[in-house]
Nucleic acid binder design. Structure first.
Lengths: 204, 204
DNA sequence: GAGCAAAGTTTCATGCTCTGAAAGCAGGTG
DNA sequence: CACCTGCTTTCAGAGCATGAAACTTTGCTC
């Protein structure tokens, strides 16, 4: 899925593909939220989206993946975003900026995001896969950090450490946000976490 | 598996159970290292351990779990270890001490650990499950941190942040260690990561 | 030791997940 | 319109995972 090109510019075929994909993802999320992961089969999801179950697998490699579509696109977006952050910022500050952007984006789709988090928390077997996608992000981010600070300073494992730790902080902020039902903006929680990181994690 | 009680004290039945379990885990690791995850079926593993495939599932809920038996016991050991760390230490210092202990323990079984890491890196679909176990650890650790610093300072999400970030640092150090084939002790890499955390992640 | 109960293993049956292949259908193109 | 490409469907099949019932081993008791 390219980041350029709106839905209207595509032919009927590609539009139908997007529709089918969205219908499958939506059906999966809705059904699993209702009945739990084990209570929903791929056939149920395909049925609800009005396609064959074989078609489901043309879009998603597994049932779980249909529930976790969102994290996919960030894998390319974050590194790009990190590269275009102001040059004056340290890598830590730049990463914070990128993740703030993501937080804002997620708050606009708060309902969907919260539903997804709910589904994940109710079906712990999904957690792995969520973090797995996060792992691919981590590598991509580490590469972008290395690019940013230059090869000689990148040796020694700083990029890997920074992206691993930064994403961990993001995840904690996100889960904290989902617990406080919208009373605190995710960006505030993220800022809090990054302030602590930058201060060396002093005890409160 | 209790920490008390050696193998000799158990009856024949329990000894056989341990043997079977170990044989299955060993066969799984060996076969997957040779042929890759997709090239090995549960039946292959059961065959190699000379039991029926149904018996395999009496020991492990899935093929993947047979490859990741080790991380299971740390879930209770780390919180205990954290609680018994010297009272003078900050939570960050105590966590560092606990993870150093784990690193030392892993270096004693370096061959096995490296083989396991190799298998995981070659089969990324395992990563999820590994991190899943890690997630349970994270919660247990967060609870132990909260216990350590007291309820009023635990509000505000510090325990969750510290354990998430600390484990991320540990994971990075471990992977870095597995890449440098034993030339650098894992404890050194861990110290490096925690020094950076305590200093607020300054760019190198 | 003989017998008994508990626990573990095996076999059998079953449902779901996921993949490959071949045939059919629709969209885009000359 | 005719054709080609690409997506969907149907069909077939391997592997994963679980439940139930029969069988074997173990450990204990008398």
């Amino acid at each position: 899925m390219d980041s350029v090109g709106s839905v209207e510019e595509l032919g009927r075929r590609d539009r139908k593909k997007l529709e089918t994909r969205a219908a499958l993802a939506e059906a999966a999320l809705r059904l699993v939220a209702e009945r739990g992961l084990a209570g929903v089969t791929v056939e149920d999801i395909a049925e609800a989206a009005d396609v064959s179950s074989r078609t489901f697998f043309n879009y998603f490699p597994s049932k779980e993946d249909a529930l976790l579509v969102a994290p996919a696109d960030v894998e390319t977006a974050w590194p790009k975003s990190l590269a275009s952050a102001p040059a004056g910022l340290t890598a830590l500050q730049a990463l914070r900026l990128v993740l703030r952007g993501q937080a804002e984006c997620m708050e606009q789709r708060a309902e969907e995001v919260r539903l997804r988090i709910k589904v994940i928390e109710e079906n712990p077997s999904l957690l792995p896969r969520l973090v797995s996608g996060g792992f691919a992000n981590e590598r991509a981010l580490a590469a972008a950090v290395a690019e940013r600070i230059g090869p000689e300073r990148a040796a020694g494992g700083y990029p890997e450490l920074l992206s691993a730790v930064g994403l961990a902080a993001f995840r904690v902020a996100m889960l904290r946000w989902s617990r406080t039902k919208g009373s605190v903006p995710m960006t505030d929680l993220l800022d809090d976490a990054f302030d602590r990181l930058a201060a060396g994690l002093p005890e409160p």
